[in-house]
Simulated scan of single mutants.
Amino acid sequence: MKSFKNRNIASQVKQLGFTLVEMSVVLVVIGLIVGAVSIGSDLQRNAVYQQISSNFMQSWSQAYQNYFNKTGIVIGDSASAPTLKVDGANATPGEICTTSLQGFMDAAGIRMPAGRSEGNEDKFVYLDSNGNPQETTVCFQNVNWSLPGATSGYVVRKRNVMVLKSLTPDLARFLDSQVDGKVDARFGLFRESTLASNTGTASTDWSIDNRRAYGTTSNTNQDESQVAVVTAYFMMNN
């Protein structure tokens, strides 16, 4: 009888051991699935970022150039007395966005990128790293821009730029690397708006990253938070 009980206890211990092994296998499988989902999400996000780069930003840059080639002036400039400045026909030039931008393009017969939808060609919707919707908008403007001086240091000159609003830090860095080959918010053709006219000589990272939640000034981003955004300038050829 005692021998039978010992065998029964041993059998239970053996079964318990198998259960622990099975649980370990399940945990490993779950870890692999979670890792695969995370990698898949990153790949999908990068694919959307690439689409924004090529089908939205670069396509709008080409549309801007097509407008110049066809009309001989930049968007919003005076045809009779060109200034080579975006919105130069106004005494105080500002941004050209939304319906105003679409109106210039339509009047010149320039095909606009697809964007978000018909009538919203200047917008593109995407998801941030937390899966929340964001919408970037393109405008054009003449802004202060730092350039190497004739002798040394940097000087500020006026340049026409594409304004890209509501970029998450990840997307801004991605577009920066696509345009300039490296991430630097201070130098190159693609800059953070607050640093475009900076005459310093030190390379500078983008002011925030994905730890910043929208509408806050500290790194308090939670999984459900909408990620904070920045504005970037992309310098045009004309």
Score class of each variant (00 low, 15 high):
Tyr233Glu: 00
Ala81Asn: 12
Phe234Pro: 07
Met236Lys: 05
Arg111Phe: 03
Gly149Thr: 11
Ala228Phe: 06
Gln15Ser: 09
Leu189Glu: 13
Ala202Thr: 15
Thr201Ile: 12
Leu32Phe: 10
Ala172Asn: 10
Ser146Gly: 06
Ser146Asp: 09
Gln12Ala: 07
Leu16Pro: 12
Ser197Ala: 15
Tyr214Cys: 13
Leu171Lys: 07
Val34Gln: 07
Ala202Leu: 10
Lys2Leu: 04
Ser3Glu: 15
Ala150Leu: 14
Thr204Ala: 05
Asn219Met: 09
Phe124Pro: 00
Asp128Thr: 04
Ile33Glu: 00
Asp184Thr: 12
Ile33Lys: 09
Asn132Ile: 07
Thr98Pro: 10
Leu189Lys: 11
Thr92Ala: 13
Phe4Asp: 14
Gly131Ile: 02
Gln58Lys: 14
Ser203Trp: 06
Arg211Ala: 08
Ser78Lys: 07
Asp77Tyr: 06
Ser80Leu: 14
Asp176Leu: 05
Gln58Ser: 03
Tyr233Ala: 11
Phe124Ser: 00
Ser3Ala: 05
Arg45Thr: 05
Phe56Ser: 11
Asp128Gly: 06
Leu43Phe: 01
Val155Trp: 12
Asn144Arg: 10
Glu121Trp: 00
Arg212Gly: 06
Arg116Trp: 08
Arg191Leu: 14
Gly35Ile: 15
Gln102Arg: 09
Val163Tyr: 04
Ala89Ile: 03
Val138Met: 02
Ala89Lys: 13
Ala89Phe: 11
Leu101Ala: 03
Val21Asn: 10
Val25Asp: 08
Met235Val: 15
Ser177Gly: 03
Ser177Tyr: 01
Phe18Lys: 12
Arg111Val: 15
Pro169Glu: 06
Thr194Pro: 10
Arg7Asn: 01
Asn120Ser: 12
Val155Pro: 04
Thr220Glu: 15
Lys2His: 13
Ala81His: 07
Asp87Gln: 07
Ser24Met: 15
